[in-house]
Simulated scan of single mutants.
Amino acid sequence: MYEGALADLIDELGRLPGIGPKSAQRIAFFILSSDPADVTRLSAALTRVKDQVRFCTICFNVSEQEHCKICRDTRRTDELICVVEEPKDVVAVERTREFRGKYHVLGGAINPLDGIGPDDLRIRELMARLSSGLTREIILATDPNTEGEATATYLALMLKPMGLSVTRLASGLPVGGDLEYADEVTLGRAFEGRRVLDV
């Protein structure tokens, strides 16, 4: 339908996750009608992120330095490590302002259908971190889906013999939700994760 540079831009945008053909076309036409200075800033930001952003050599979170700001923060404890799938999960946990430990980013989850096994994740690096003996508890904060559960189970089996406390984030009903709209799995997990009320 389109040709040349516009078609190439639509194709490249369509390769981004969550961007379908119509969204790619809308974004391409937005860029086409944008001020050249805005497009130059976008282009510069894309180039800069590829040139400057890397993974922390300790936890594998994104960073512009060898160690991310969380690993450099001396107020954070090494006794707690929260294991997540992706760097965006670190941001989600940080927004709660409840966690004062450190993180380990696996870089995905076990998914045999996509050919992703334990060796494709940063599990060896996690085990090397734990050899220091500073960590007491590992919090498994993988996604509550089939792949996340498989990854959490695999890690729990590996970590339990090390004498560490291995916990999993509770899952259940969202705040503000109605009980009648909860599916069976969510409601079942809410029952499993129930806690004593301190009044």
Rank of each mutant, 00 (worst) to 15 (best):
R195C: 00
T151I: 10
D73M: 11
Y154W: 14
I81L: 14
Q65D: 12
A182M: 15
R48K: 12
M1E: 09
Y2R: 03
T47A: 12
V53Y: 05
A5T: 15
S43N: 13
R136Y: 07
E149T: 13
N111D: 13
D8C: 05
L155K: 08
Q52M: 11
K102C: 03
Y181P: 02
D143C: 04
A150K: 10
L42R: 06
D73Q: 09
A7D: 04
D38L: 12
F55V: 13
I58T: 10
L121I: 01
I139E: 02
G177M: 02
G107V: 08
R95N: 13
D183C: 12
Q65K: 14
D120F: 10
L6C: 06
L126W: 01
R136P: 02
L113V: 13
A5H: 09
R76L: 11
I58A: 10
R97I: 05
G18D: 06
G115M: 13
E86C: 02
D78A: 14
E85A: 15
A5W: 04
P36G: 01
V199R: 14
L113C: 00
D183L: 14
M1I: 09
D51A: 14
Q25K: 13
S132W: 02
M1D: 11
P144N: 08
L42A: 03
I27G: 05
I70Q: 10
D183W: 07
L130A: 09
R15M: 12
D51S: 13
T153I: 13
Y154H: 15
E3Q: 12
E147G: 01
F30A: 03
A128T: 14
S131V: 08
P174N: 08
H104M: 06
L157F: 10
N145G: 10
D78L: 10
L187V: 11
D35Q: 10
A156V: 02
P87W: 09
R54L: 01
T40C: 03
S34G: 05
L140W: 06
E184R: 08
A141Y: 00
E147S: 13
L130E: 06
S23W: 08
A182L: 09
V90T: 03
L32N: 12
H104Y: 03
I58W: 00
E125K: 11
G177H: 04
V93I: 15
I70H: 12
L169Q: 06
Y181R: 10
E149K: 13
V84A: 08
E79W: 06
L140C: 11
S34A: 15
V93H: 00
R26S: 06
V196H: 01
A170Y: 02
C82Y: 00
A128V: 14
G20V: 03
R48H: 11
E66Y: 04
T135G: 11
P87C: 11
R97H: 15
G107K: 08
T135N: 07
T142H: 05
R194E: 08
M162H: 04
M127W: 06
T40Y: 00
G148P: 12
T186K: 09
F30V: 01
E79L: 07
S43K: 07
M162E: 00
L157A: 14
R26V: 05
I10G: 09
H104K: 06
I70S: 06
